[in-house]
Amino acid sequence: MQGNRVIGEAAIRAGCRFYAGYPITPQNELTEYMADNMRRAKNGTFIQAESEIAAINMVLGAAAAGARAMTSSSSPGISLKQEGISSLAADELPAVIVNIMRGGPGLGNILPSQGDYFQATRGGGHGDYRTIVLAPASVQELADLTMDAFDLADRYRNPVLILADGMMGQMSEPVEFSEPAPRQYPESYVLNGRGKGKSRFIRGLILDAIRMEEHNWKLYRKYQVITQKEVRFETFWTDDAEILIVAYGTAARIAKGAIKRSREMGIPVGLIRPITLWPFPMEVIRSFAERVDNFLVFEMNTGQMVEDVQLALGGIGKVQFYGRPGGVIPTPAELAKVIAHHARKK
C-alpha cells in the first residue's frame, strides 16, 4: 500500500474523525484517500479547505470540540500552517500534522528532501513552544507512528508532527495495521457545552505578563516530561562500531544499505536512527561518545540535524557531515564511498 494512503488508513483506524487539507504534491494521495474513506467512518468529516491556513484552523476548531483531527501538506503548505500550529500549542490542543517534505526553500520542487528539520524541531511558528516530531523510515512505520501520533497528541495535549518525505509518501510497501488502543481523553477538556458543570475555556491570548509567564512555564514543564519519556530511536550494527552514522527517515534507510556494503569491506560502521526528532535522543548519542569518537551525520539537506548531534556531543568526538539537498536521493553505494573515505581519514 502507498505511504500516503497508509497514513490516511492508519488515522481513520486510530479514530481520526476530522480531516481538512489543501492539495499539494507529493502528499495528494493522502487528501484523496481521506476524501474517499472518511465517509465510511462514523461521524467522519472531510473538508477540502480553501487554503492551508483554513485547514489548520479548522483542525484547531475540531480539536477544541473533542475530535481526533488531522491535516497534511508538504513543505510550502506546512509553512502556511505555522500560525495555527503555534495556536494549537498555546491552546494545548491535540492534533496531528503530516509533512511530506519536498525540495525547498520557496516552492522548490516536488522531490523528496529533508529540508524542514529546523522548522519541525524548533517549533516552526512563533512563541516558546515545541511539537513532538516523529520521523518514519518505512511504510510500516508510517502506519504505526500515525496511530501513535494521535495517542501522544492526546496524552500531552500538544500538536504532533509526522515528518516524512516524498519518497515515503509515494512509495508502496507491505503493511500491517495494528489494533489501536481506545482513546483516553478527558471530557473536561472538550468544548461541547458545560451542562451543569464548571465553565470550560481554551485560551491562547493571555495579556497579563505574570499569567502568560505561568502558562509558558507550564508548557515548559510538559515539554520536560516529553523529553524524559518519549525519546525513540533505533540502533543498527552499533555494538562493535567505530564509526557511527546518524540519520533519520529515508536517509537512514539508505544508510543501512551503505552500512551493509561497508561491513562487507570490513569497515566497522553502525547507525543511530532517531525516530523522534523532538525530543531528540541526546542522551543516547552522548552515551555512545564514551566509546566511539567518530560520527558521520547524513541528511538530505545541507546540514540541520548535525547541529543537534554536535549539541548532544558537546565537543567530544569528531562530527562530520554528508548531505544531498534539493531532491537528490543518494544511493547506498555513494554513501558507502563516503564512509570508506571517512574511515581512511581517521
Partner: peptide
Amino acid sequence: VMNEGYHVTYLPSYG
C-alpha cells in the same frame, strides 16, 4: 511478489 513473502518496494514517478 509481496504475496510470495518477499520484501518489496514500489516507487512511481509522481511529477
